[in-house]
């Protein structure tokens, strides 16, 4: 799959990070298995252009990191809420930004037809009823 806004290596990095955040586990499919990235442009296209540029840059840099470094970085980001120092706000922003992207592409009604397994929203039992006249 390709994106109008994110480079191929950026997309690959999201899939790698996504699988670290949401690995295959029991009923839960791994992030990349679901294929939610198919719809990433529908989310990213509304972000300010400067933010998209920054995101591409960060993801391209992360693409060069081996898995163990990426894991270390993710845990640093996860625990950044109480951190101090000049890098702490950047870690926090990255944490929210990356988790936001991953969760948005996973806990969503928009799953490609090619995915045949149980959808994450069904696994957690989320079944919203909209009565529209």
């Amino acid at each position: 799959m390709t994106s109008k806004y994110l480079s191929n290596s950026a997309l690959k990095t999201i899939n790698r990070i996504g699988d670290m955040m949401i690995p295959k586990n029991g009923e839960f499919p791994a992030f990349s298995e679901v294929g939610g990235l198919e719809y990433i442009d529908e989310i990213v296209s509304y972000a300010p252009p400067a933010d998209i540029k920054d995101l591409n840059l960060v993801l391209t840099i992360l693409a060069f990191m081996p898995n163990f470094v990426l894991r270390w970085l993710l845990s640093k980001m996860e625990n950044s809420m109480e951190s101090t120092g000049p890098l702490a706000p950047i870690f926090r922003m990255l944490d929210v930004g990356l988790r936001g992207l991953v969760f948005s592409c996973y806990y969503t009604e928009k799953i490609p037809a090619s995915y045949k397994g149980k959808k994450p929203l069904d696994i957690i039992g989320f079944d919203l009823t909209r009565v529209e006249d």
Binding site: I43, V44, Y46, D51, A88, P89, R92, V96, S104
Partner: peptide
């Protein structure tokens, strides 16, 4: 929008959330 992801992206300024300078609050 009919999905949560589309709601954040399409309706909110900044394509979702805006932060304070310390990124402790959204």
């Amino acid at each position: 929008p009919r999905t949560e992801a589309d709601t954040s992206a399409r309706l909110y300024w900044g394509g979702g959330i805006e932060f304070d300078a310390e990124a402790k609050m959204g």
